[in-house]
Design a protein around this nucleic acid. Structure first.
Lengths: 243, 243
DNA sequence: CTAACATTTTTCCAACTGGTCAAAATTTCC
DNA sequence: GGAAATTTTGACCAGTTGGAAAAATGTTAG
């Protein structure tokens, strides 16, 4: 439930800088002493706010979302919300960094010692499950990407790149061993990301095109079946394909 | 250069409703007479504005973009811009409908009488070229989708669906003839959309992950090679694949 | 009960937003 | 050249936005 951090961007110091009087608690006059025990109530409210913010940000993007909308969604007044998160950006930052963490977990679990096809298949499954179960997170991420990832540029240039480099190497090894069709490992990963996240990010379009009849969860089962077939066949090594 | 319209959403009546005094020209007092000859200069300025708006909207989405930003980008004052497009929404509407038109052209050209693999391969190529040459259009579209396509819901539910239904039928025919591996045609189309548009919509991520060394246009050539391989192998019909 | 702290609400504000309007500058057409 | 039409600008506005201040209302430990 608490996977390793890709990048711990929310240490606390930043967010507590001028926290409500709560930090003077327990101690009396230490300069920037014991930052915050963080009440259970506080944690709860913060979660409610983050949940509401996810809803709003994922739909309208950072600029398009307003604190008022988030507050309403969270069932509280704007100033009350600002009591917990003094800055709009803070809320967004928290969401993004929490997101990146879980978002890349499936890729991290990519196991070199496993069977290539089993690994790829289960990676696709997991990504697809995430698109189904956490579409808002996916859209939040997509929104950030569309805008040029101003707030997470470093994260993707350093941490994400390192992770993908590592996994690309694994894929290459498998290819060298003839256990996987030779193909650009980076683009292979991109294509898995793209095809799976598509079902979250372009959900409206998918639903519209599939029509009313095919909109239950079945949609994702069909997608899984199709994608498995595509990637399994597409990456099965073969001496050559008769033209 | 002027493909058939998917949906002519900008007839004129709406946009001329209270146009600058220009419409009183030529005639003198016809009720809603001759709507608009539309000067060459007007057309030019409008194009400049639309170009600037594309830049801004594709980056920030509808709500996130401001008229001031667009005006600055277009090198004119806000009131001046509003002289040409009295409403922010008008600009956006124009962009979207122009976009849909060209965006779906490749799919429309999908030819039943052609060879399945040739058709699919060239469809992928074209979509990839569009991602390369018109990334902003792609992002504008993606932005709209992420937000639930409030402004084009009907368009995708009717026109787009009809087009995809038609092409799905073509794919099914090919599959029945054993010329194409049996697979869900809708998800097949989705996967092509997803993988190709990914290179426009997630451009930052792609660049970051590929690293500085691989950022020239070569990126797209690699992608094209990879995707062709994936889809060609993935969809080649075979009696069965040994597990 | 009450002092100390935590939370919430009310009020307010300055900056920004989409948009108006009339005057000024420019272009067009005779 | 000059009247009429078009285009551009500057001043302005009402509504919204992110956020600050402080008063009001809990809550809790002694």
């Amino acid at each position: 439930m608490a996977p390793r951090k890709l990048n711990a961007a929310d240490p606390a110091p930043a967010s507590v800088k001028r926290q409500h009087k709560a930090d003077a608690r327990a101690a009396s006059s230490h300069p920037p002493a014991r930052p915050r025990p963080l009440t259970r109530i506080q944690k709860e409210k913060q979660d409610i706010i983050l949940e509401a913010a996810l809803e709003v940000f994922s739909l309208h993007g950072f600029r398009g979302a307003t604190i008022d909308q988030i507050a309403t969604q969270a069932g509280m007044s704007k100033p009350n919300l600002l009591y917990y998160f003094p800055k709009k950006e803070e809320i967004h930052r928290r969401l993004i960094s929490a997101l990146l963490d879980t978002w890349l977990a499936p890729l991290r679990d990519f196991d070199e010692s496993g069977d290539p096809f089993t690994e790829i298949r289960s990676y696709i499954r997991r990504k697809l499950e995430m698109a189904r179960d956490f579409p808002r997170e996916s859209r939040l991420f997509a929104n950030e990407m569309l805008q040029g990832a101003p707030r997470i540029a470093e994260m993707i240039e350093v941490d994400l790149k390192a992770l993908v480099d590592e996994k690309a190497k694994v894929l290459l090894t498998w290819m060298d061993q003839g256990r996987l069709s030779r193909a650009d490992p980076y683009h292979l990963i991109f294509s898995i990301w793209a095809t799976t996240q598509h079902y979250a990010d372009f959900d409206v379009q998918v639903r519209a095109v599939l029509g009313k009849g095919r909109n239950g969860e079945g949609r994702f089962e069909d997608a899984a079946r199709y994608l498995e077939q595509l990637f399994m066949h597409g990456l099965t090594p073969k001496p050559r394909v008769g033209v």
